[in-house]
Simulated assay, not measured.
Amino acid sequence: MSIARTKKVLIPLATLLAAGTIAVGSGATFSSTTGNTISAVTAGTLKHSNSKDGQAIFTLGDVKPGDSRNGTLTITNTGSLPAKFTLTEKSSTNAFAAENLKLVITNTTSNTQVYSGTFGGLVDGTKNDLGEFAPGAAATYKFTVSLDAKADDTQQGLTAGAVYTWDSVQLDGTVQQ
């Protein structure tokens, strides 16, 4: 076959091949599209309730040697975030001889002792760890105050008092996806 004749065959063949490519590239194709509605972010809440908020946990009068009295309150995580809770003795006074007036704080929900010692013996201003509370979780705390049975006449008419605060701080955690 001559070169001129080969060109005559190849040129129409190349033209057909190019036309076929254009037809395939410009023809109808399948496609798919998806969309999303408005995405939103809502901040969680960190709140807690105190069953005796703004009130004394206990007010004990006419205590005599050997008496033991209780006061209770319930702390509840009412927020939507898990939190770490603490108890702080904000301030305290105790005119009794240290060995005579005792305080025991018990988490009656978990049956764990938070503090046991002299009334006012928690370090004022220091946060005492109460653990982690899931949203909706609650714990009841019992404060038991007792005047030693061996307290003598020098303890008559004395007073003691304390102010407590309860704090919650969100837990650090990973973002849920």
Rank of each mutant, 00 (worst) to 15 (best):
T21A: 15
S92A: 14
L16N: 04
A98Y: 03
S51I: 04
A83K: 01
D67W: 10
P135V: 04
L101M: 05
T165M: 10
T59R: 03
N94K: 14
F96D: 05
A139H: 15
K8T: 10
Y141S: 00
L87V: 11
K64W: 01
A40L: 11
A40D: 09
S80W: 06
T45H: 09
L171S: 15
K90P: 00
G131Y: 12
A95H: 01
T86H: 13
S168R: 04
T159Y: 03
W166H: 06
N70H: 07
A162K: 13
G54S: 08
T126Y: 11
F30S: 14
T33G: 07
D129S: 12
K142S: 11
V41D: 06
Q113L: 04
A137W: 01
T108L: 05
A134K: 15
E89M: 13
V114S: 08
A137M: 08
T45Q: 10
S116R: 09
A18L: 14
A40T: 14
V24P: 02
Q156Y: 07
K84C: 00
A149D: 12
H48C: 01
A134T: 06
Q176R: 07
G20T: 13
L158S: 06
V104W: 05
V175W: 02
G66E: 03
T93D: 07
A4K: 10
G117F: 01
A56Q: 11
V163H: 00
L87S: 05
R5G: 12
A139S: 15
V175I: 09
V24D: 00
K84V: 02
L13V: 09
V145A: 14
S80H: 10
D172M: 07
Q156G: 11
A56I: 00
G44S: 00
D53P: 06
T118Y: 06
S31G: 05
D167R: 02
L158H: 13
T165A: 13
N107H: 07
A160E: 02
T21N: 07
I105T: 04
T15W: 11
A28E: 10
T76H: 06
S32Q: 08
T72P: 05
S26T: 14
V9I: 14
V175Q: 11
I57E: 02
W166C: 01
A137Q: 15
G44K: 02
F143G: 12
N94E: 06
T126F: 07
Q155N: 04
T76F: 00
F85E: 03
F58K: 08
T72Q: 09
W166D: 01
T42H: 11
F96N: 13
A56L: 09
